[in-house]
Amino acid sequence: ANKDSTGHDNTYYEDKLAMFWNISTKGFETDGCMIACHLDEPGDKSPGRKYTASPEETIDMWHAKYVRTMPMGVFDDQYVDNNKDPKANEGWGRKNDTAPKGFGYKNNETADKKAPAFMNLHADADDQYYVIPSKKVPFVDNFKEGGVVPGIEISPLAGGRADILARNHYENGTWTLEVMRALKTEGENVETQDIQFTDKGKAYPFGISVFDNSQINHLYHDQPLELKFQ
C-alpha cells in the first residue's frame, strides 16, 4: 500500500470530496480552508487537527464519501468547532452534525473483530466494496482467490447528518456530482452546525478539496471560492 508520512492510505481508499462553508469563523473569507484544516501540531499523525480559534467560531463541513455515504445518496453533514483535545473528540474540532445514533456506516466485522459479519447477496461490481441493507446477509466464506470482501456496512444517515442529498456518476475518468440542500435547514443546533443561505444578495465563501483514493492527501484551493445567487 502507498501510505503517506502519517501512515494513512493513498491506494486502497475511497474517493472523497469535502467542502468548508463559513458560519462564524474570522479570517475564512481570505484564508479559506487553511484557517482551520490540518493545523500543525508537532508529533501528531492523526487525520484530524481541524479546529477554529474560539468557541464562537464554527465551519460547516460537507463530506462526500464515495463508498460510505454516496451509495445512500447523501453527503455526511459535519461541522468544525474549536476543540483541540483529541481525547475529547478523536476528530479534534471536526464533528458530526446532531443526529440519532445507529445510522450510517460502520466496519463490517464480527464482535470479536476476527472476521467479516455480513456480505451482499448477489453482489455486483457497484456494491462489492460495501454491504448495503437491501442485499445484506450473514457472511459465508465462499470467496475465491482475488474476490473482494466488503469492508464497510452502510445504511442511510439520519438527522442533521442527512441534510445534503447527492448523486454521482463516473465515466471516462471523471466524476459528475450533483448536490441538493435546503437553503435554510431546520433542527437541533443548526445555528452552529449549518451554513444558512438566507440572503441571496450576498456571496458565500467556501473551500473545496478532492481526494483520489486517499485517506488524507488531497487537492485543495489556497484561497476560498464564492457561491453567488443569480
Rank of each mutant, 00 (worst) to 15 (best):
N96T: 08
D97G: 12
T98E: 13
P100A: 06
K101D: 07
G102E: 09
F103Q: 02
F103K: 12
G104N: 10
Y105N: 06
K106Q: 07
E109T: 15
E109D: 14
T110Y: 02
A111C: 05
K113R: 12
K114V: 05
A115W: 05
M119I: 03
M119A: 01
N120T: 09
N120D: 13
L121M: 10
H122E: 15
H122W: 11
A125S: 11
A125Y: 15
D126M: 12
D126S: 03
D126R: 08
D126N: 05
D127G: 14
Q128R: 13
Q128G: 15
Q128E: 13
Y129S: 06
Y129D: 15
I132W: 02
P133E: 03
S134R: 00
S134Y: 07
K135Q: 01
K135P: 03
K136P: 00
V137I: 05
V140R: 04
V140L: 03
V140Q: 04
V140C: 08
D141E: 03
N142K: 12
F143P: 08
E145P: 07
E145G: 13
G146H: 01
G147N: 08
G147T: 03
V148W: 05
V149R: 02
P150M: 03
P150A: 05
I152F: 07
E153F: 05
E153V: 07
E153I: 15
S155I: 01
P156V: 00
L157E: 03
A158D: 09
G159L: 00
G159D: 01
G160K: 04
G160E: 01
D163R: 15
I164C: 00
A166W: 00
R167Q: 14
N168C: 10
H169C: 03
H169K: 15
E171Q: 01
G173Y: 10
W175F: 09
W175S: 00
T176I: 05
L177Y: 11
E178L: 07
V179K: 00
M180C: 10
R181G: 06
R181E: 13
A182F: 03
L183Q: 11
T185W: 07
T185V: 04
E188D: 02
E188P: 00
E188I: 01
N189R: 11
E191W: 06
T192I: 06
T192D: 04
Q193P: 11
D194K: 13
I195A: 10
Q196W: 07
F197C: 13
K200E: 12
K202D: 05
A203C: 10
A203M: 08
P205Y: 11
P205S: 11
P205V: 00
I208D: 00
S209C: 12
V210K: 10
D212G: 12
N213I: 11
S214K: 02
Q215P: 14
I216M: 13
Y220T: 14
Y220V: 08
H221Y: 14
H221E: 10
